[in-house]
Amino acid sequence: MDLHYLTVILLGIVEGLTEFLPVSSTGHLILASELLGYDAATWAMFNVVIQLGAILAVVALYWRTFWAVGMGLLSGEPTSWRFLRNLLVAFIPAAVIGLALHDQIEMLLGAPKVVAVALIVGGVAILAIERLIRTDRFHGIADIPLVRVIGIGFIQCLAMVPGVSRSGATIMGALTLGVERRTAAEFSFFLAIPTMLGASVLELAKKGDQITSAAVGWDSIALGFVTAFIVALLVIKWFVGLVSRRGFVPFAWYRIIAGVGALIWLSLR
């Protein structure tokens, strides 16, 4: 197989593995591109678009939840309306801030050392939160009060720094605001749908002409998309089961080790 397509498959695997884990999919894609000798900026749009493959995995796995919410909305069921309200409200801060700081965020996408440092800092933060947080009050997405949903939405914006992790920020933010572990993880999954869809649409609107470039064409994007979808299907259920039993400490240590290793590698190369 052509080396280019092997790279596409590898990046799709990295995206599917890391999109819903608190380890930063964007950070891993940037580091992977550096490791493979590719310019991260050249692959930036590819990296954003294949995230839709991982997002589609959420829809496929939780279609019954979305169906129930849709039917509840049609019948005026209050829980379904609160579910939708909480997702939309949590999405708004990222939409507004992402549009306002789009150029500055793009500059960070070409800074692998920022990713390495953010991995370490995020790992330490997860260890601290896991040690300090002992109680939970909210066991359903529709049960989370509006003020706390707004807080989660703003915390998600920290993930605009590559290496922070969107899922990590939203999950840890939810935990600190009293949300139970499984609910925090699933809220992060569902919130990824409008957030990443919005990011992909914005990227396509600004750089759609680059899809047909020699670096990343439609065939590469399709292959990366399918790969990310399949891998994410496998990861999501495993992740929910793991955090329900063991929490997030293993991911914290992974972040710290990966970040230190990346810093050493980037300093020596």
Score class of each variant (00 low, 15 high):
residue 74 L to M: 14
residue 12 G to D: 08
residue 140 G to V: 04
residue 230 I to N: 05
residue 138 F to P: 02
residue 268 L to V: 15
residue 213 S to G: 15
residue 212 T to G: 15
residue 191 L to D: 00
residue 211 I to T: 07
residue 187 F to M: 12
residue 87 L to R: 04
residue 223 L to P: 01
residue 203 E to F: 01
residue 196 M to I: 10
residue 82 R to Y: 11
residue 131 R to G: 09
residue 12 G to S: 09
residue 94 A to P: 00
residue 13 I to E: 04
residue 231 V to Q: 06
residue 155 I to M: 13
residue 164 V to H: 05
residue 227 T to W: 06
residue 82 R to P: 01
residue 168 G to A: 10
residue 116 A to W: 05
residue 30 I to W: 04
residue 81 W to I: 03
residue 235 V to Y: 09
residue 66 F to E: 05
residue 235 V to W: 07
residue 148 R to Y: 09
residue 124 V to Q: 05
residue 84 L to T: 14
residue 44 A to V: 06
residue 241 G to V: 06
residue 203 E to Y: 04
residue 192 A to Y: 00
residue 228 A to R: 10
residue 147 V to S: 14
residue 48 V to K: 03
residue 241 G to P: 10
residue 130 E to A: 09
residue 56 L to M: 15
residue 3 L to Q: 13
residue 185 A to P: 02
residue 166 R to E: 03
residue 134 R to P: 01
residue 37 G to E: 09
residue 174 A to Y: 04
residue 156 Q to C: 00
residue 240 V to A: 08
residue 263 L to D: 10
residue 225 F to S: 02
residue 62 Y to T: 05
residue 71 M to L: 11
residue 37 G to Y: 08
residue 127 L to D: 07
residue 131 R to T: 12
residue 171 I to V: 15
residue 266 L to Q: 11
residue 25 S to I: 06
residue 222 A to M: 14
residue 179 V to L: 06
residue 172 M to S: 12
residue 258 A to T: 10
residue 200 S to W: 08
residue 156 Q to F: 00
residue 170 T to Q: 09
residue 207 K to R: 14
residue 203 E to K: 15
residue 79 T to D: 13
residue 208 G to Q: 12
residue 13 I to R: 06
residue 50 I to K: 08
residue 137 R to C: 03
residue 155 I to Y: 08
residue 220 S to Q: 14
residue 191 L to G: 01
residue 97 I to V: 11
residue 167 S to V: 04
residue 260 V to Q: 08
residue 150 I to K: 03
residue 158 L to V: 06
residue 126 I to N: 07
residue 215 A to G: 09
residue 247 G to Q: 07
residue 146 L to E: 07
residue 215 A to S: 13
residue 206 K to P: 02
residue 65 T to P: 00
residue 179 V to P: 01
residue 181 R to D: 03
residue 29 L to K: 07
residue 69 V to P: 00
residue 91 F to I: 00
residue 223 L to S: 07
residue 115 V to I: 12
residue 245 R to T: 08
residue 117 V to F: 11
residue 13 I to D: 03
residue 95 A to K: 04
residue 106 E to Y: 04
residue 188 S to K: 06
residue 210 Q to F: 02
residue 229 F to N: 06
residue 233 L to M: 15
residue 166 R to Y: 04
residue 162 P to D: 10
residue 73 L to G: 11
residue 260 V to G: 08
residue 229 F to D: 04
residue 71 M to C: 12
residue 170 T to W: 06
residue 47 N to S: 15
residue 191 L to N: 01
residue 20 F to N: 02
residue 139 H to C: 03
residue 33 S to F: 00
residue 76 G to A: 11
residue 201 V to W: 10
residue 218 W to P: 01
residue 199 A to P: 02
residue 42 T to F: 03
residue 263 L to F: 08
residue 263 L to Y: 12
residue 48 V to E: 01
residue 153 G to H: 00
residue 182 R to V: 08
residue 252 A to V: 08
residue 48 V to H: 02
residue 162 P to Y: 03
residue 114 V to C: 09
residue 5 Y to E: 11
residue 225 F to E: 04
residue 85 R to M: 05
residue 35 L to A: 15
residue 224 G to F: 04
residue 73 L to S: 11
